[in-house]
Design a protein around this nucleic acid. Structure first.
Length: 860
RNA sequence: GCCCGGGUGGCGAAAUUGGUAGACGCAAGAGACUUAAAAUCUCUCGACCUUCGGGUCGUGCCGGUUCGAUUCCGGCCCCGGGCACCA
């Protein structure tokens, strides 16, 4: 009786053999080509979700593939352990964030091991450990000393009831998520790192990141958004100070009919002192959140300050408005407005009855109605005094020069990118290593006193929002400069700080420095794998941090990640019911029965519990808030890791979003069982089969040709990371093997075919592949076997199938001898009955022959 | 609002990215085996027409380039991701 496929038992056995043999523990080996394969580390939220499973399977497949190619492969894993969810859990369950986090890590680590990922666990790190974050504190102080760190006011979401700063996620429909109070914008002092000092390098080097998806490179370029424009000063009537603005369209300068400043601009605040109506307006402008999406879509409102600006060229007097869409924190907090040539300014001018002037006309001389809509293209200047009749391009230089000569402005380079605000008013994060001294001001913590430890033994009750904010035990300290009483900074770092350098720390576990020389063996990361949602922020901060590490002498490379694979989202249907208070109850897909029509289209969805209908909300990224996550654990328990891995690889290409459906998992499981049964049924024969000369018949040659054709395709798909196609090819090869007969020659082909399938499958479903490889006597460790190569002899064909088209429509397929001249293919095509039928009386005008593919006969 | 993707059978997808649209799998249907069921195996499976040879249409929509377009170009529609304090 043959062995049954029992993944739970098999996978445990194989995994313990990997542990015992230390299969995935690696060290620096200068004689071998290194390959550093990294998946984005998880936030320890509780348990793995499908997005993790997908991410880490992709990473593990690449790591094992590269290993089978003979490289020295490093694949580490760790935990992005600081963050908001731990504080939320703490508030909800009255447990300390540290304990909650470490328990989650323990559970999720078990899950990762159960999935058979080949990590070198000796390098594991959690970012909430002082041994980790102390180096971040150390680097921050280094940056402070270099002048790359500064403090300034920045806008946050303020909950006026809970008296706390809210994360964007905690603002729901303009209200605080706990208090329900309308959120306000407020400015508080925060720490910034000068990422804009590196903007040019970050932008220009994108060109060299050839292993990155073009999509991500484009997003980063646009995010940095370098523009060339002019900075200039508008005078203020009756005052000596000036309003400095930046524009990319100085050619429209003569069309300026007003200037807008932020509601919090000092000019507006001063004007409000004598103007209660304006004061109310400024107060009203505080309302709302801070996200760009919100600011760009709010109703644009403004109010004249009763102050006038002086046009730098014409000396014309123009009104200054306070406007809710201009933010103090961004740029200079003031903009010039050209309603004739900017859509937003146009809408604002119509609303407040401000004059609209046309100063640019189309180059083609066509006329337009500037009152009806802005003309935003470049063109020829008109009504622009000395600059009239210049082109927009000429005017750019002429106006910039004019301003510069008079000390009123200059050409200037600008970025959309803003400096990195790293302060967070939260507990569960890395303490910012700074001290506030009444005498000496800001003083960094002496580096020999690091780490500044975050107190972890915190007692939570309902009122605990931030346990270190008013905790004198933590904040009271001595000033390192004058020795007097001082206070510690109680803000913590943005968690992007930790995730910006973890990839480097994996290379230097235990180092008594931020990094040691091992970093330069492994870095840069050869393949980074993670969600597309990180395309800009995380990936840009990590690139920036790498340059900071380089400039601190810690690494030699310029960029952290040579190749990037951005995996698509795992999405699932959402289902909800509207509650009386307007909020929604979200139901998990597993709680839902779909009622479909005969074609399988969903008609309605009903909740299993009460058989009443629910609203189908559409496909969205799996998330807690929409309750549409699928717990992978149940699938692993039922089918085993190999099946779950196989299914997630097979069902979509890695960079596309994966629409979750349970059905397909069964198919993946069936395939593994089929492969298992094929090996086990012939195990005795195959394991003792000696290689020898065999003569293949025609159908056997054809089987071998098809096998090697599929192998060739699979190898190509491995290179381009199309693992869904690799699985397809494995299935196709297995189907061919099932159709073989029982002769000696068939057995030889079966054994050869299995050796190919198992090696192709080894990175994807490693436990099964490992076991069957040994069963067939190929060797002890499939990971150490040679990567397969197609047999060119097997691929040779005597004749090839050509498609014959008449006027672009397929009319026949014909067999043409391999390597035949074009004329031979043409002649054979013209002998075909169906082809002749369609040519009929028509005259042949042209015959196109694409070698090995088709013949197209053009006739009329 | 801005930036970036995507849209192909009932479903997930494939097409070596200008050359046979739908490989592989799921679901469904029919049959074989079985007392029966499960499992397994075989066949069918885009739509319409058909004299059963084949024909017409079909890759979100409209238009263009080409002997030939899922693929390239222009314009739209819908869906998803990001927008700096979720990670």
């Amino acid at each position: 009786m043959q062995n049954q496929y029992n993944p739970a038992v098999l996978e445990a056995e194989v995994q313990s053999s990997w542990v015992n043999n230390r299969t995935f523990e690696v060290s620096e080996d200068p004689n071998k080509e290194k390959f550093y394969c990294l998946s984005m580390f998880p936030y320890p939220s509780g348990k793995l979700h499908m997005g993790h499973v997908r991410n880490y399977t992709i990473g593990d497949v690449i790591a094992r593939y590269q290993r089978m190619l003979g490289k020295n492969v490093l694949q580490p894993m760790g935990w992005d352990a600081f963050g908001l969810p731990a504080e939320n859990a703490a508030l909800k369950n009255r447990v300390a964030p540290a304990g909650w986090t470490y328990e989650n890590i323990e559970y999720m680590k078990k899950q990762l091991k159960r999935l058979g990922f080949g990590y070198d666990w000796r390098r594991e790190l959690a970012t909430c450990q002082p041994e980790y974050y102390q180096w971040e504190q150390w680097l921050f102080i280094e940056l402070f000393k270099k002048g790359l760190v500064y403090r300034k006011n920045a806008v946050v979401n303020w909950d006026p009831v809970d008296q706390t700063v809210l994360a964007n996620e905690q603002v729901v429909d303009g209200r605080g998520w706990r208090s329900g109070a309308l959120v306000e914008r407020r400015e508080i002092p925060q720490w910034f790192i000068k990422i804009t000092d590196y903007a040019d390098e970050l932008l220009d080097e994108i060109d060299q990141l050839e292993g990155w998806p073009e999509q991500v490179r484009t997003m980063q370029r646009n995010w940095i958004g370098r523009s060339f424009g002019v900075q200039m000063d508008f005078g203020i009537e009756g005052q000596t100070e000036v309003l400095t603005i930046y524009t990319t369209r100085p050619d429209t300068l003569m069309g300026v009919t007003y200037v807008a400043v932020a509601a919090e601009h000092p000019l507006a605040l001063r004007a409000a002192e004598q103007n209660p109506e304006l004061a109310d307006f400024i107060e009203a402008c505080r309302q709302g959140g801070t996200t760009e999406a919100e600011l760009e879509t709010i109703e644009k409102k403004g109010m004249p300050l009763g102050i006038n600006a002086v046009h730098p060229v014409s000396g014309e007097i123009i009104p200054v408005y306070a406007a809710n869409f201009v933010l103090m924190g961004y740029g200079t907090g003031a903009v010039m407005a050209v309603p004739g040539h900017d859509e937003r300014d146009h809408a604002f001018a119509i609303k407040y009855n401000i004059p609209i002037k046309q100063v640019i006309r189309p180059k083609d001389g066509s006329s337009l109605d500037i009152q009806a809509g802005a003309y935003v293209e470049k063109g020829i200047l008109q009504d622009s005094g000395p600059f009239s009749e210049l082109s927009s391009e000429e005017a750019f230089d002429a106006i910039a020069d004019w301003l510069q000569e008079r000390g009123k402005g200059a050409k200037s380079k600008n970025y959309r990118l803003r400096d990195w605000g790293v302060s967070r008013q939260r507990y569960w994060g890395t303490p910012i290593p700074m001290i506030h001294c009444a005498q000496c001001g800001i003083v960094p913590v002496p580096q020999e006193e690091l780490p500044v430890r975050l107190p972890e033994d915190i007692v939570y009750d309902e009122s605990t929002i931030n346990p270190i904010k008013n905790n004198s035990e933590f904040s009271a300290c001595r000033c390192p400069k004058c020795g007097g009483e001082a206070e510690r900074e109680t803000d913590t770092f943005d968690t992007f700080m930790e995730s910006s350098w973890y990839y480097a720390r994996y290379t230097s576990p235990g180092a008594d420095a931020m990094l040691d020389e091992r970093a330069n063996y492994w870095l840069p990361v050869d393949q980074y794998v993670g969600g597309i949602e990180h395309a800009v922020l995380h990936l840009l901060y990590a690139r920036f941090y790498h340059k900071l590490l380089r400039d601190a002498g810690l690494v030699k490379s310029d960029e952290p990640f040579t190749h990037l694979l951005t995996q698509g989202m795992v999405v699932a249907d959402t289902y909800y019911r509207e509650k009386a208070d307007g909020n929604r109850d979200w139901f998990n897909p597993t709680e839902i029965d779909l009622v479909c029509d005969e074609k399988g289209r969903p008609l309605t969805a009903k909740l299993k519990a009460d058989s009443e209908p629910v609203v189908i909300g559409g496909n969205e990224k799996m998330s807690k808030s929409k309750n549409n996550g699928i717990d992978p654990q149940a699938l692993i328990d039922r089918y085993g890791a190999d099946t779950v891995r196989l299914y997630t690889m097979f069902t979509s290409p890695p960079d596309q979003s994966l629409e979750w459906r349970d059905d397909g998992v069964e198919g993946a499981y069936r395939f593994l069982k089929r492969l298992w049964a094929l090996v086990e049924s012939q195990q005795t024969t195959l394991s003792t089969l000696l290689p020898g000369e065999v003569a293949y018949g025609e159908s056997q040659k054809e089987s071998r040709r098809e096998l090697h054709e599929l192998l060739k395709k699979a190898l190509y798909d491995y290179q381009r990371h199309r693992f869904n196609n690799v699985v397809s090819a494995c299935m196709g090869m297995t189907n061919i093997l099932y159709k073989l007969g029982g002769s000696k020659a068939d057995m030889v082909i079966l054994k050869e075919g299995l050796s190919l399938v198992l090696r192709l499958l080894a990175p994807i479903s490693p436990h099964v592949a490992h076991h069957l490889w040994r069963e067939l006597g190929f060797g002890d460790e499939i990971l150490e076997s040679d990567w397969p190569e197609p047999d060119e002899d097997a691929l040779k064909q005597e004749s090839l199938a050509y498609v014959v088209q008449v006027n672009g429509k397929v009319r026949a397929t014909i067999q043409v001898p391999a390597g035949a001249e074009k004329s031979v293919a043409e002649q054979l095509a013209l002998e075909n009955e169906n082809v002749l039928r369609f040519i009929g009386d028509l005259t042949i005008r042209k015959v196109i022959v694409v070698p090995n593919k088709l013949v197209n006969i053009v006739a009329n």
